[in-house]
């Protein structure tokens, strides 16, 4: 009897587990092995080469693609900083890099008055390395390395039919940290909700 209950229980639970599994929104770019295509669908995916090795934000079947964070850091200076950051893992099981990069942050100087409406004005804006700083954290190393970045918000889409706005940010980036760490062919497609943003 117990075995039967256990079997029926398993039969009921299995479809629930199956339906609860998240899909991995990684669609490979045929021209850049290990990288995703540049999309503007809010797939919450970001890929790049770091010194030639492909990196991606990690995926779990429970939570899907690891989401990024977008937050404004209020400083005592004349400008504040907007941080776009996400965790990264190597996207090639055949490679074993000497250093495991685990986190990437793109820091963008913004005026004190920067608000969500200003974010929409960045649609189609290309920012060069003179105005941005890119940071990459290493595993087991407390101090992040920092360098310059180029950033291009290719498409910013807002879905404002709801009281909570839904922003889709997609773009390109690259970076150079002391000529020893080169971030190339970076692309992201992120989705943010207005109530998760601190500006």
């Amino acid at each position: 009897m117990k075995t039967r209950i256990y079997s029926y229980g398993c039969l009921l639970i299995m479809p629930i587990i199956f339906l609860a599994c998240a899909k991995r929104n990684f669609f490979p770019d045929p021209d850049n092995p290990g990288l995703s295509r540049l999309t503007a669908y809010g797939f919450d995916v970001a890929t790049m080469y770091i010194n030639g090795a492909p990196y991606i934000n990690p995926f779990s079947k429970l939570n899907g693609n690891a989401p990024p964070t977008l937050s404004k850091y209020i400083s005592n200076g004349s400008v504040d900083t907007l941080y776009l950051s996400w965790t990264i893992v190597l996207n090639d099981s055949n490679q074993m890099p000497n250093i495991n990069y685990s986190f990437i942050t793109i820091a963008i100087p913004v005026p004190k008055t920067f608000a969500q409406t200003d974010l929409l004005n960045w649609n189609g804006k290309r920012m060069d390395s003179s105005s941005n700083g890119i940071q990459i954290n290493f595993d087991y190393t407390p101090r992040p390395a920092a360098g310059n970045a180029n950033l291009y918000f290719v498409k910013i889409i807002v879905d404002s039919t709801d009281s909570i706005k839904n922003y889709t940010l997609s773009g390109l980036f690259n970076g150079n940290i002391s000529n020893s760490i080169l971030v190339t062919d970076g692309r992201f497609d992120f989705e943010f909700y207005s109530n998760d943003l601190n500006f």
Partner: peptide, 13 residues
């Protein structure tokens, strides 16, 4: 120009 440009929402085979 694959070396310099990236296509947005590209079609694939």
């Amino acid at each position: 120009d694959k070396a310099n440009y990236t296509i947005l929402n590209r079609d694939v085979n």
